[in-house]
Amino acid sequence: MSTGLELLQHALHAADHPVLNVTDVTRLYGERIGCADVSFKLWPGEVLGIVGESGSGKSTLLRCLAGLDRPSSGCVMLDDEGMTLDLHGLSEQQRRALMRRSMGIVHQNPRDGLRMDVSAGGNVGERLMDRGERHYGKIRSVASDWLRRVEIDPARIDDLPRQFSGGMQQRLQIARVLVSEPKLVFMDEPTGGLDVSVQAKLLDLLRSLVRQLNIAAVIVTHDLAVARLLTDRLMVMKGGCVVEQGLTDQVLDDPQHAYTQLLTSAVLS
């Protein structure tokens, strides 16, 4: 058990340390540039959006940040319970343990983030077991509580994800990721492929959960309305490079770069 003093020290440390500190991350595929020289810091509770057309390097960057891919050069530093760790300097085993412990990834396609042959409750409960929870009754009750939070009827706790609609699968994936209360969450087009009414519901849910849990998040999207609703800061990418970054509302309402101006003027509002 942590003492009050330790908790306070953690809180003070977290308040003036970025959760994520990214320096000059570059990922090359042979001659081709995936992403180049990306640097930023992300603090607790902050939500960063990455926008840009397909092929601009958004997903490549996200994969490097989330430890799924290795940058060709550059550095990704993560704050882990008061220690600052170099994500790509760790051993495979350490990195996996860190990823399980303190980060979560919401994939665009729920099938990539869920175990399709395991019940809804199992999908959520598995993450609690990863963190050492062993009491079956408790796991089931937390899982059922999380189904309710993402607006899935807890009566369906024993159903398989394939019996769910696309929107429900995505909400189940979000419950699976957030149940372990990660400090850092990566989302790749979390509302892509969903119809508009389901999207609005999901956005509203994400918005309130991110606030309640004080999560730091990086969200890749090509939808500027999604970026406006969910993010505090925005990074605009083109050809693998960041062409503009700043406050979300400033970048969208007073874009400085030619490409951002093109992007914002192409949207029907």
Binding site: L247, D249, Q250, D253, D254
Partner: peptide, 9 residues
């Protein structure tokens, strides 16, 4: 007003 709010640069 938007400049004062930081909405415009």
């Amino acid at each position: 007003l938007r400049l004062l709010y930081g909405n415009y640069k």
